[in-house]
Simulated assay, not measured.
Amino acid sequence: MSTPSFASAPPTVKPANPRFSSGPCRKRPGYDVASLDLSTLGKSHRGAQGKSALELCCTKTAHLLGLPDGYRIGVVPASDTGAVEMALWSLLGQRPVDILAWESFGLTWVNDVVKQLKLQNVNSYTADYGLLPDLNQANFDHDVVFTWNGTTSGVKVPNGDWIDDQRSGLTICDATSAVFAMDLPWHKLDVVTFSWQKVLGGEGAHGMLILSPRAVERLESYTPPWPLPKIFRLTSGGKLIEGIFKGATINTPSMLCVADYLDALQWVESVGGVERLIERSEGNLSAIVDFVAERPWIQFLAQDSSQISNTSVCLTLNASSQQVSAMVDLLDEQEVAFDIGSYRDAPSGIRIWCGATVELEDIEALLPWLEWAYNEVCQS
C-alpha cells in the first residue's frame, strides 16, 4: 500500500459540511438543534400534547408524500429494520413469497423469511452488487418483497412499471433510502417502510410503516401461525389497531427525535415539497456523473445507468482495498469527507450520500479532493 506523500498541492476549497454518511445522514441545511420545539420533552407521549405531535408526524408525512386515500402511516419501533420485520412477521404466510434482493439488506429479508419464519414456498431472485435481478420474474399472485433502493449497492429500481396493478398478492417495499428522494408509485405499493435518519437526516431508532387498504385487509383477515412480539402486533381482536396510525405508538418514542423529525418535515415544506427534494438529490448525482465520465480510474458500482441511485452513490476505483481505505482515511483526516467508505459487505469502494440535505456546492467541492486523494495514495 502506498503511503500518502502529499507531493501535490491539495485543492483550496473544502466542503462547507463534510458529512456524507449514508446513515445517519446529514441534517438539513441551516439545522440548529436550538430551533426545535421541545415543549413535549418530559411529558408523556400518551398525553394530549405528545400524542398530537406523533399524529402530526403521520399526517404531515402523508400529506407531503401524497399518499392515496385510505393509506395509513404510523411511527413504529426499531427504525426501518423494525418496520420491515413487523410487516414480514405480520403479513406473510398466507401466499407464496417472491423476494428480490441485490444487496445486504435485501439478503437480510431473504434470511428472515427462509431461516427465521421458515416459510416453505419462497422464491429468491438475487443479483450481485451492481446489478438488479430480472424484475419480471416476480409473480404478483404471490407476496413480493423488495427494496426500492439498495443503500449498500447504489442500485435502485428505476420505476414501478414491472409491478402488476391487478396483483392479488401484496407488495412489501423497503424504501428507507428512497422515500422523499425518488418518485414512488404509491398505488402499486401495499407496504412501504422507511426511517427518519435517511433522506431527511432525522434521528435513529424510529421507523415509519405505510399500509395500503389491501394490506389492512390482510391484517384483519389473516393470523400468522407464529407468535408475535408485542412490538410487532398491529391488530387486536382481528381488527387493525388504528391508534398506531393516529399517534398512539406501540412503545415509548423519543419526543426529542419526534421534534427533530417535525423540524425536517417543516423544511421539506419550506423548500417546495418532495419534488424539490428529488431535484436536489438528482442534481447532486449529476455532478458525480459528470466527474466519473471524465476519469478512467473511477466507476459506478451500478452497471446500468438507469439504475444508479441518486441517494447512496456507490463507486469503485482502480485501486486495491487497502488503497481505498487509505484514501478514505486521508479525506477524513483532512476534514473533507466523513464516513464515505463502502458498506462492510459491499465491494471495496466509496459511498457518497447525495440526498436532498446535501448541498450541491459540497459535492462539487468534494470531487477535486477525491482525485487528489487518489493521486496521493495510488499514483505516488
Rank of each mutant, 00 (worst) to 15 (best):
Y71M: 00
T59Q: 11
V289M: 10
D190Q: 00
G106V: 03
H45S: 14
E364M: 13
S2D: 06
Y31W: 06
V97N: 07
L56R: 11
G283N: 07
G50A: 02
L100C: 08
T193N: 08
L366Q: 09
A87F: 01
Y129T: 07
A373R: 02
T357A: 04
C57G: 00
W297G: 11
N149H: 05
A127L: 03
L36I: 01
E335G: 11
A175V: 00
S309Y: 01
Q322C: 03
L41D: 05
A138T: 12
S21D: 15
W162L: 14
G243H: 00
P77G: 12
C314M: 02
V75Q: 05
T3R: 12
L285A: 09
G160V: 08
A101I: 00
G283M: 03
E376Q: 15
M1I: 12
K246E: 14
A264P: 02
T223H: 07
S348L: 01
I99M: 06
I363F: 06
P347D: 04
W162H: 14
T252V: 15
P77S: 12
V289H: 09
A138I: 10
A365E: 10
R26P: 09
C173Q: 01
R19A: 11
E333C: 08
L100V: 07
A127S: 05
E361I: 09
L315K: 12
W369H: 14
Q266F: 10
G50I: 03
P77Q: 13
G23S: 10
V199A: 15
L107F: 08
R280F: 13
S5P: 08
F6G: 12
S306Y: 01
Q120L: 15
G283C: 03
V13R: 15
W372P: 02
V144R: 08
D329G: 14
F194H: 09
G349I: 08
H45E: 14
W162C: 13
A356K: 02
A62H: 04
F146K: 03
L88S: 02
G70V: 13
D112H: 15
A293N: 13
K27V: 13
A287V: 08
S342N: 13
I163G: 11
V122W: 02
A346H: 02
S90V: 06
I210N: 00
S21W: 14
D190I: 00
D164S: 11
D183L: 03
K51Y: 05
Q266D: 15
E361R: 13
S312A: 15
R28H: 04
D134S: 06
S212A: 12
V114D: 07
L228M: 04
A346G: 04
S35K: 15
Q197Y: 06
P18I: 09
N139T: 10
A287Q: 10
S52T: 13
G201N: 03
A16P: 01
W102S: 05
M255P: 05
V324W: 09
G160N: 10
P96M: 05
I350P: 01
L100S: 08
F245I: 02
T108Y: 07
E269Y: 08
G106H: 01
E203R: 12
N121S: 15
A205Q: 14
P368Q: 00
A326C: 12
G341Q: 09
L209A: 08
S177F: 15
D290V: 06
Q137S: 11
G30L: 04
D260C: 14
T171Y: 03
E333D: 14
I99Y: 02
R72V: 03
W102Q: 06
G82V: 10
A248I: 09
D37H: 12
V113Q: 00
V292E: 10
I99Q: 02
R28G: 02
